[in-house]
Amino acid sequence: MLRIEFQLGMAGIPSRLLETGEAVESIEIDNAMPVANSAVFLFLTVRTDSEVTEDSLAMELPGLEIIDMSQAEVSSHTYYLGVIADSTDVTVFGLLTENRAIPHRIVGKNSQLEVVASVRDWNHLKEVASAVEEEYGSLELLGTTQTNRIGFPLGSNKIKQSMSGKLSDEQLEVLETAYQMGYFKVPQEVTAEEIAAELDISRSTLSERLRRVQHNFCKLLFGPQE
């Protein structure tokens, strides 16, 4: 099985959201479930660079029914939306599932849709790419890796969503950088000093942010300290 990462021109609901006057920075499709009359129930994570209200979004997105909108606890410009949209608003999702690829991540930002999906093999990759190119004109493959596991499909993102709403952008950045650089591997592939240098912060700031991340993880798992 191959995990592929590709990008294509913006379309569908991410495009509509980015075209609103609400300074939307990115939209991630967390889940998509078909409902009656070729409509689809979408769960989205929307990041903006300023405050957004449900009314202002609803005004700018006629035809889109906003069922629920909540704000992340720490990242105040991150919103979780539940909407009912037309299935044509998530064409890439439909294309992937129709072609039996497993969508893992669909994010719209910087005028591009970034997609991570799993395909069976090289031929399946070609089939999926061909279907996407037919619909969108072109696609750019970014990366691939081989895997034996099916991984988490779109919609199995609840832990990530729960956690990311409880961590600040700085804490997330520290955590992700440390993870990507191999800080949590055994043996460690990088020292705390190297991560601090990468992030251009002091060793003590790094340590403080990582401890806050650990504290928040524990709080989520075990509840508040007695």
Binding site: R3, I4, E5, V116, L141, L142, G143, T144, T145, Q180
Partner: peptide, 8 residues
């Protein structure tokens, strides 16, 4: 890539 995939 950032997620460790072989860059294409």
């Amino acid at each position: 890539t950032l997620t460790g995939k072989a860059r294409i």
